[in-house]
Design a protein around this nucleic acid. Structure first.
Lengths: 400, 400
DNA sequence: AAACTTTGTTTATCCACTAGACTAACAAAA
DNA sequence: TTTTGTTAGTCTAGTGGATAAACAAAGTTT
């Protein structure tokens, strides 16, 4: 009888929960006094005092000078200590590696980027190590040092963090998590790039206020990260959001996945390039056709290219429409490389949604392009590490 | 500053949580002894004893005679008291009213059904009252009596329980919840029919074991109920699952929603009937063409009709494919009226999914037709009421 | 200066869980 | 039978953490 021990409710859980509550309050409303924390959370003043002392001991918060009085003793203001530790977040792309060193607030301390072409797994692994070593060495001295490493990858990651399949990297069954954990002896989080991006936007980007956010990562392919009820939905095996292979044209062309009329055949970077290749575009000598070329052509006012973008925006709208009808989200955020072309995509996309989404879905609905499109994924995995670290900090000492 | 009071963690929460844990254990593993509850939940024996006494006082459980000894004192077996109260669940359809009286286990005590055509709101309300009055009067005497009323409706229900829109009933902004609450002075739950069905399947049907279930309610239209991470996902305004209006053919025919190529134009009962109407089918004299006719024709071996069903199954597969790629569920359940035709739908549906769903999505994936297709929704809303009642029971007395 | 306010700590109390002793009730072996 | 060992369930003491209320500290207002 597979009797997995249910987690029971006891004092530890209570303390853990309240400690989190206090920390969140301080993070989001700093500077704030103990008294204000107490009245705003509903916790007793004494309880808050005691929990605050714990947090001070952990260096997760610090006291600044006294604040202004409102007719009585002046309060001691508390602030979240973003510099108590640093997190490494890496966006592992098909032909690039983007590494961030962030503090616990998610502020970027350092950003490193390298580009490459068609490297083997071993070569990428080496570059990855170099990147992590470099970022680690740069990190300022802090009470907790480097608190974890997060890596976003363009592929299918199961619930254990194993990379099952990354078609564009030509990887299969890569257990990067264990590799990094044994090398660095730190908590490692591997996450699908779209999931990471969704979380990045939720934490630091356009989606701070919303609880139901759909992040559409439109790059070479299209993936989707789902923030539902405030947290990432990963599906039963971690494979949710493979929505690039949603059929939008039953009798459409065959996709490499075996399906017909997949969305990403119409609205991805790859689709855009394929269609552009059919045109006779004025390219600089010997350069390959890529997104950057198309953007500069559009900037020069090339109507053919602009038309392509607009058509792609329209198709993006079709899929986003489906997403809206499915999820009734507060916010849809379009990120990754295609988001850089928002100027030419936005109008046709919005037109399509306005015309076709059910009217009641359009209340309180925001459609945005990512604010830091290229950084969302790296920020997201960094945020995962931070969250993980903080939740461990909340646990009673004896278990750590 | 909209400071909604955060719920703090204290011993009440602990007790509430553990009491739920114990009750669930007893519900799902009855008959079971106190000792077994303790060892299986991880709670202390004393704690379990005290909580069990509380539950006995509330009549939510009862002691049966002694069980078999395994070499020591014979245990006192505990059982969930399904007859501690009764719940009313009503499926309000476009042309029918299906009412269930269930015990707390969800067992059907009484089932009443009436059919009608094109009634006004007032007329339906009257029938609804009659139905509820009847079911109430039938309920056996019990410690808690009727514990709540749930109603499933074919329309858009917002998070307050207001029916915003029920196109096929021609209703707009109906606040049935308040009407029923004031008349019966009982907790009332109004829920979209697909959501209700999903919950019914999760609790009593094919989906008992899974945590991520997608219930496809294929009737006149197509709606979807989403059980994600074990609980119903309703979207930010309660409008999730309007997936019948998902585009599966960009350049397809225009739907009444304004969109083109909606799924329900291909795979719903309405679509099936429309296509059947174009054929010259041998109908009994003067009868309208309806699903029952088609089923009996198929049973007689009419190849044209069987072909229609198969085609519809194929289209159902297309949409379900999209659902699988989006949600990575453990289970997809097809319910509502179309589920009755599973014999002719199943093969082409499965073929489509097997051929086109991404391979890794097909592991641990089950596609089932609902076991009690016509009852799922009523069972679901009844289950909502029961859950609500039990969660109130777990709270400390002073607040009730 | 006196009175009032507000902040933050301290103390006593309460509540629910845990550990472990204890009683009750049984089975199997001697 | 009696003895021994095992299991079920209760009881008691102890612990951790929350609360309420008193209190000390440090202001402002009159």
């Amino acid at each position: 009888m597979n009797m997995k021990e249910n987690r029971t409710w006891n004092h530890h859980v209570v303390k853990e929960g309240n400690k989190s509550l206090v920390l969140e309050k301080i993070k989001n409303n700093s500077p704030i006094s103990r008294a204000a924390v107490a009245s705003q959370t509903g916790l007793n003043k004494g309880t808050v005092s005691s929990l605050v002392n714990d947090l001070l001991d952990d260096h997760l918060i610090y006291e600044s000078g006294p604040g202004v009085s409102s007719g009585g003793r002046r309060p001691v203001m508390l602030l979240f200590n973003g510099s108590a530790g640093y997190s490494i977040g890496i966006d592992l792309g098909v032909n690039y590696l983007l590494g961030l060193l962030t503090d616990l607030n998610g502020n970027i301390v350092e950003k490193k980027e390298i580009f490459f072409k068609k490297l083997s797994y071993e070569e990428i692994e080496k570059k990855l190590f170099e990147m992590i070593d470099l970022l680690s060495s740069i990190a300022p001295k802090s009470p907790h040092g480097i608190i974890g490493i997060g890596v976003g990858v363009p592929g299918i990651v199961d619930t254990n963090g194993d990379i099952l399949l990354a078609p564009n990297l030509n990887w299969k069954n890569v257990n990067l998590k264990t590799v990094l954990e044994t090398r660095y002896n730190l908590p490692v989080i591997i996450e699908n790039e779209a999931n990471a991006g969704a979380y990045g936007e939720k934490q630091f980007g356009a989606g701070k206020e919303s609880d139901n956010i759909i992040y559409v990562s439109a790059g070479i392919g299209i993936g989707v990260g789902l923030i539902l009820n405030g947290s990432l939905y990963k599906g039963s095996n971690g494979f949710s959001g493979e929505i690039g292979h949603m059929t939008i044209q039953v009798d459409g062309p065959v996709c490499r996945c075996g399906n017909q009329g997949c969305w990403e055949l119409y609205a991805s970077e790859q689709a855009l390039l394929a269609k552009a290749a059919e045109l006779d575009l004025p390219l600089p000598l010997k350069e390959e056709l890529d997104l950057a070329n198309l953007i500069s052509l559009a900037e020069q006012g090339n109507q053919q290219v602009i038309g392509l973008f607009e058509q792609t925006g329209d198709y993006l709208g079709v899929g986003i429409n489906n997403i809206i009808n499915t999820f009734n989200p507060q916010q849809v955020i379009i990120g990754n490389r295609m988001a850089a072309s928002n100027r030419w995509l936005e109008e046709s996309l919005n037109k399509r949604v306005a015309k076709q989404a059910l009217w009641f879905q359009q209340n309180n609905l925001q459609i945005d392009f990512s604010e830091h499109s290229t950084l969302s994924a790296a920020l997201g995995v960094s945020a995962f590490s931070i969250e993980n670290f903080l939740s461990v900090c909340m646990q009673p000492k004896s278990f750590v």
